[in-house]
């Protein structure tokens, strides 16, 4: 029963992460900012609306948002949280974890291409280019963690990491954390890679692909994006704060604190740096890949 806690927490609290990021940014800019629960209000509003579908689109366009929510929900079921075991686990599920996001991306891109708009095609092309570079970084990082803990499932990896691992393999773990952090920012279209606020065609990646979705579909996309933010954040929190407790609540409180802390960190990053030029983004992602690969080399030795 306990393993249901994490999926329920994630489904309930994921949009709150967006609120925390926005409030942090508002604090830095000296604004009051939107309410902390704004993402929930937006979702409620969007779900009450009707959807308009262009005549040129097919079922692919409608399937995009649904897969966009389903994939991260399954991914969340694979992640242990604060010492609670994951709902599902089997050896090798980290590959499934990585490629669930691949599936999500594929459907978003297919839906964007399905509209036939050149503008969305451009966004799709960028998304695919950058994710092709982010994916090896994620997989190499997970491979390094698997090598460190000798386990091939996410539950095993995050469950057997302890603070002692940070004591004796600090360089490798720090490299993995840095690599995963860049992947986290890139995959969630956050600032050094993509700006979630802009609607400028020159800079958009993720936002441009979902321009034609409206009403409940767009609500699902927003919700799916926040679930993705939660899922990747949970992995990062699990690596940085590997505390396990016999009792239930301390672990959950620490992990939740880590998640909210991470959201604040994203807000600080977004307030303190500018989006990279599009030409520099591949370099950032290759750097993340190098960090992960380096960690793997250190651990393989």
């Amino acid at each position: 029963m306990n393993s249901l806690i994490h999926p329920l927490l994630a489904l309930l609290l994921a949009p709150l992460l967006l609120g925390i990021i926005n409030r942090t940014k508002a604090l830095f800019a000296g604004r009051t900012g939107q309410p902390l629960l704004q993402a929930y209000f937006d979702l409620a509003k969007l779900l009450r609306k009707g959807a308009v579908y262009s005549e040129t689109t097919t079922w692919v366009f409608r399937a995009g948002p649904i897969v966009g929510v389903a994939a991260p929900v399954v991914a969340i079921a694979l992640i242990p949280f604060g010492g609670i075991p994951a709902l599902l686990n089997f050896p090798g599920d980290l590959i499934l974890f990585a490629y669930l996001f691949g599936l999500m991306r594929f459907m978003t891109v297919a839906a964007a291409l399905d509209t036939g708009s050149a503008f969305e095609g451009m966004g799709a092309s960028r998304e695919v280019q950058f994710s092709a570079l982010a994916e090896p970084a994620l997989l190499l990082g997970l491979a390094a963690l698997a090598r460190l803990t000798g386990d091939l499932s996410l539950s095993g990896i995050l469950g057997s990491l302890t603070p002692q691992d940070w004591a004796h393999a600090a360089p490798a773990l720090a490299l993995v954390t840095a690599g995963l952090l860049v992947v986290y920012l890139a995959e969630n279209s956050r600032i050094p890679v993509d700006d979630p606020n802009t609607h400028l065609e020159l800079t958009m990646i993720h936002e441009v692909m979902v321009l034609d979705h409206g009403g409940p579909d767009f609500g699902l996309i927003l919700y799916g994006a926040s679930l993705k933010l939660w899922a990747l954040g949970a992995i990062l929190t699990g690596v940085v704060l590997p505390f396990h407790d016999e009792r239930l609540w301390p672990g959950i409180v620490i992990a939740l604190g880590g998640m909210f802390g991470l959201a604040v960190f994203v807000g600080v990053v977004e307030s303190s740096m500018a989006r990279l030029r599009l030409l520099r983004v591949p370099q950032l992602l290759v750097a993340a890949m190098v960090l992960s690969a380096l960690a793997l080399v250190l651990l393989m030795r």
Binding site: H168, A170, P171, L175, V286, L294, L298
Partner: peptide
């Protein structure tokens, strides 16, 4: 020895940064 390993990682990173700058 873990300090030396840390320094070695910094050295590796500076080299890779040199190649990418």
């Amino acid at each position: 020895s873990s300090w030396i390993d840390g320094v070695m990682v910094v050295l590796i990173l500076t080299n890779l940064a040199l190649l990418g700058t």
